[in-house]
């Protein structure tokens, strides 16, 4: 085991993992985090905290992660390369690790054009694959990107995202293999609505045996309304929503129930695909529904999150 991460432990044990997404508030109120943590805490092995998702300013993912850590939960800190250069990211990762945070998800990040500060300058000093390499080097070689030594290296469980639905399709698997050779320990995919297309992608993944080199968690999004389904279909780049799902939502009498049903059906189907080791539930602004979904698919209760080993960092200290 590389870390004390609960997610790493669950995945290593072969158990089908569940992670959930938490969007931090657009304000300084910690209660918002605590409220969502209460909803998600018992039904997810780890909780992803987005890093200014869609380029809209929110509470820092690391700060929110510390709040989760204080509740005994296992946060997955998302880090985008849009806003910070290699200096800032390495510094932030050391800080997160000092707070006992292990899981980091490496992303390039949505372009600022989509956010609330479209006139800002972006950074993109490094890309997501280079970010993975950098974190691996910090962890395994105890060195910064520059080559300088780190006295106490951060203990990291490194994640990355992949979108099986974006183009060019064949390149998506090549890109996944690049992420794996860069050093990613787990993958969370873009939300799956088109299960056939996802299966096709997983087939290519298995052909290259990539599923044996990393842990793949399939992303899902429960849809709340027909309007949301349509909006996402038309406006969210990188999402692929079949017409059938939109029409099911439009025809449904109880739309929320239909949304839950679509989500649980998807989970049940992806769970059967060889090489899928977990799900990642992105219930954007609908966190309250996550426990119900996890329960319905029979994934409750979750394995208990083990107690923090307070001497873990010291034992890894080369000087100690």
């Amino acid at each position: 085991m590389k870390t004390d991460s609960n997610l790493e432990k669950v995945l290593a044990s072969g158990e089908f993992a569940v992670t959930a997404e938490l969007g931090p508030p657009r304000g300084a109120d910690p209660e918002d985090i605590h409220k969502k943590a209460k909803l998600l805490g018992d039904c997810a092995d780890a909780i992803n905290i987005t890093d200014n998702q869609t380029a809209i300013v929110r509470m820092s993912s690391i700060a929110a992660g510390i709040l989760l850590k204080q509740r005994g939960l296992d946060p997955v800190i998302q880090i985008v390369t849009r806003d910070r250069n290699r200096i800032a990211i390495q510094s932030d990762v050391l800080g997160a690790a000092a707070h006992g945070i292990n899981n980091v998800l490496c992303l390039s990040g949505d372009h600022q054009k989509f956010g609330d500060h479209p006139t800002s300058k972006n950074v993109f000093d490094i890309d997501s694959i280079q970010l993975i390499q950098m974190l691996k080097k910090m962890r395994d070689e105890k060195k910064f990107m520059s080559g300088a030594d780190i006295d106490v290296a951060p203990r990291l469980f490194i994640g990355a995202a992949e979108n099986p639905f974006a183009d060019p399709f064949e390149f998506r698997v090549i890109r996944l293999s690049k992420k794996i050779s860069a050093g990613t320990d787990f993958i969370q995919t873009q939300a799956v609505f088109d299960v056939e297309k996802f299966e096709e992608w997983m087939k290519l993944v298995r052909k290259k045996e990539l599923h044996k080199k990393t842990h793949i968690l399939a992303g899902v999004i429960p849809i709340k309304s027909a309007k949301m389904a349509k909006y996402m279909k038309e406006n969210v780049a990188g999402l692929r929503i079949p017409d059938e799902i939109v029409s099911r939502m439009e025809k449904a009498k109880d739309v929320k129930e239909e949304g839950i049903k679509i989500c649980t059906e998807t989970i049940e189907r992806v769970r059967k695909i060889e090489g899928v080791q977990g799900i990642h539930i992105m219930a954007v602004a609908w966190e309250s529904i996550v426990p119900k979904i996890v329960e319905r698919v029979g994934l409750l209760p979750r394995p208990p999150i083990r107690k923090e080993d307070s001497n873990a960092n010291e034992s890894k200290n080369p000087n100690g």
Binding site: K113, Q130, D167, G238
Partner: peptide, 20 residues
Amino acid sequence: CAKNLLNGPCGGSQEGKCEV
């Protein structure tokens, strides 16, 4: 590339076009 990506397209590449 709007994000200067050096190792392949981001998740927003759709039908050969840039999400931006």
